[in-house]
Simulated assay, not measured.
Amino acid sequence: MASKESEKLAELYRYWGDRRAASNEGIPLIRDFYADYHQLATEAEGVSYATVTDGPIPGIWAIPAGAAGDAAMLYIHGGAYLGGGSTGHRKLAAHAAKATGLRTLVIDYRLAPEHRMPAQLEDSRAAFDWLVELGYAPERIVLAGDSSGGALATAVALHLRDTGAKQAGAVVAYSPYYDVETVGSTFDTNAPVDAMAGRLGREGIARNVSNFTTEEWDASSPYINALRSDPTGLPPMLLSVGGAEVLVEGVEMFAKMAIEKGVEVELEVVPEMQHVFQFMAGSAPEADESIAKTGRFVRQCLNLF
């Protein structure tokens, strides 16, 4: 049974849905929502922050005490490609940084619809390349993200492979936004219990996709739609999704695809949890357990013991 603490995220999403239904503010309102995403998480003790002043993409560093000197994590925020940023995601990233022991770069990539794909992929890849320029070996860099950021973390790994670059050390994706064509049956079965996207349904997802795609970069692009990709050659992956989400089957389908292509995949489906339930880090046991699992997974992949 889900903890009482975890219900706060569902309450937040229902509030968002009510506000969205009663407002004509559109994307500005959505961006306001994502800017306040941090409110359910606690501050991660022992993690400090520093503004990025010299990188190609703006953002912040989340730096845990005793961070590994030769490894780093790139955290790519979610927000349906339309919102989100280092401000609203810093607490979640900080808890992940503490669990993994990695200095973590949280970037502010360009947002749609002002900037459509591949702008978000280009910025995420530029941030990865900058970490390499700083001296981190590619295999010592973890690609991580939530929702659309989880999809982008996966897309960067695909892009590294496709361009012949050295691969990252691991991918961690929380509630990754893989199923942009809404082919999964959980868009039907989980609609009544998904407090974030259940009310939007397939039509709502289609509207969202239209805001960040183009004729050339549409929902069939493997960098946008992981279910259209070939996962061969991807690094070890930790995929986590809430059991109440409409996205569940899409994540499960990709995990199966990747395993069949020889990719090491750890799939976590947590019963009754909502979209990116890790946002309750420090406040709900399910979030803390998932982030602790992230720490174990990353430390094993990078031999950080």
Rank of each mutant, 00 (worst) to 15 (best):
M1W: 10
M1N: 14
K8L: 13
L12G: 02
G17E: 07
G17Y: 09
D18A: 15
D18M: 13
D32T: 14
Y34A: 13
L40R: 05
L40W: 08
A41V: 11
A41Y: 00
S48I: 14
Y49D: 06
Y49F: 15
Y49R: 12
G59M: 00
A62V: 10
I63R: 08
I63W: 05
G66Q: 09
G69F: 08
A72E: 09
M73W: 07
L74T: 09
L74C: 11
I76P: 12
G83Y: 01
A94P: 09
A94Y: 02
A94V: 04
H95W: 13
A96H: 13
A99W: 02
A99F: 08
L102K: 10
V106F: 05
P113A: 06
E114K: 00
M117I: 12
L121P: 00
L121G: 03
R125P: 00
V132N: 12
L134Q: 15
L134Y: 06
G135K: 11
Y136T: 03
Y136C: 05
P138W: 09
I141T: 10
L143H: 07
A144I: 07
A155S: 00
H159C: 06
K166M: 06
Q167G: 08
A170S: 14
V172G: 03
V172I: 01
V172L: 11
Y177F: 15
V180Q: 02
G184W: 03
G184R: 08
T186H: 04
T186P: 07
A191M: 00
A191R: 08
V193Y: 10
V193R: 14
D194V: 10
A195D: 06
G201I: 08
G201R: 06
G204S: 14
A206F: 06
N211W: 02
F212L: 05
T213E: 11
E215R: 08
S221Q: 14
A226C: 07
S229T: 00
D230V: 13
D230H: 10
T232C: 09
T232V: 13
T232D: 06
T232Y: 13
T232Q: 14
G233W: 04
L234H: 02
P236F: 12
M237R: 01
M237E: 05
M237A: 13
L238V: 12
L238H: 07
V241M: 08
V248L: 01
V248Q: 03
V248Y: 01
G250W: 04
E252H: 10
F254M: 13
M257I: 12
V263S: 04
P271W: 10
Q274R: 10
F277K: 05
F279A: 01
A281F: 04
S283K: 07
A284Q: 09
P285N: 12
D288I: 02
S290T: 12
K293F: 02
F297H: 07
